[in-house]
């Protein structure tokens, strides 16, 4: 049996979680909402993060717009995702939520715009 102390990163409450791993069975205490349990289970098996950055825009007064991975991606792939983002340029006009890149760095996750450029 293994015990791990984690800080939940789902919201700014930052609950202190204790995860007990007993073979396949993972129990979580210290969370104040269901997100905490999900986070802790994922964090000890398949840690994931949302990646945010910004990319240059062509054809707009707005120089750059911000982007994010639509959902979280495996933590180990953060820098692969960043490599793709660094090579990405978008064309105006672009709306919030528009897909900038499908399946970014083979994560199966879309890269979407979080700002608009007219």
């Amino acid at each position: 049996m293994e015990k791990k102390e984690l800080t939940c990163i789902n919201c700014p409450m930052g609950c202190q979680l204790t995860v007990t791993i007993d073979g396949k069975y993972i129990t979580v205490t210290g969370n104040t909402c269901p997100r905490g349990e999900d986070y802790a289970k994922k964090e000890v098996t398949d840690p994931r993060r949302i990646v945010t950055s910004s990319v240059p825009v062509r054809g707009s007064e707005t120089k750059r717009i911000s982007v994010k991975t639509k959902t979280d991606i495996p933590k180990g792939k953060i820098f692969d995702v960043m490599e793709v983002i660094k090579k990405t340029t978008v064309n105006a006009p672009i709306e919030i939520g528009d897909v900038v890149c499908e399946n970014v760095a083979d994560t199966g996750v879309q890269l979407v715009a979080t700002q608009r450029a007219k």
């Binding site: 789902n10 700014p12 910004s54 911000s66 919030i96 979080t114």
Partner: peptide
């Protein structure tokens, strides 16, 4: 503030700063 983590209380979803502002 292009990072995520905004709006969990207001919109019950996790937004980036520009999305929250918009």
């Amino acid at each position: 503030c292009i990072h995520n983590g905004f709006g969990l209380h207001t919109f019950k979803e996790e937004l980036t700063g520009p999305e929250y502002a918009a």
